[in-house]
Amino acid sequence: MCLGIPGRIEAILDGSPLERSGRVSFGGITREINLAYVPEAAVGDYVIVHVGFAISRVREDEAQQIFRYLEEIGELDQL
């Protein structure tokens, strides 16, 4: 229940600000998700979804940080 998973916004559906929703794809599965708490999120963005609500937009630049770190370790290993 508590497992928030990242999904990609495929389409924004109409709705009042509180009921603003979108079609969000999780791998192959698509669900209608409430987007009221991520007003800045747009089609193509990834959002973290909990119990039918997006609670956070995933920041791509931050997501890359760990892989940059792993690369650095890899380069050190090769020295």
């Binding site: 229940m1 508590c2 509180l18 009921e19 609500f53 609670i55």
Partner: peptide
């Protein structure tokens, strides 16, 4: 039920029900 993660969803349910 839940922690701070599910609370915004549950709060919205109460808010919409009132509206």
């Amino acid at each position: 039920i839940g922690f701070e993660t599910t609370a915004p969803a549950n709060a919205m349910a109460a808010f919409l029900a009132r509206r």
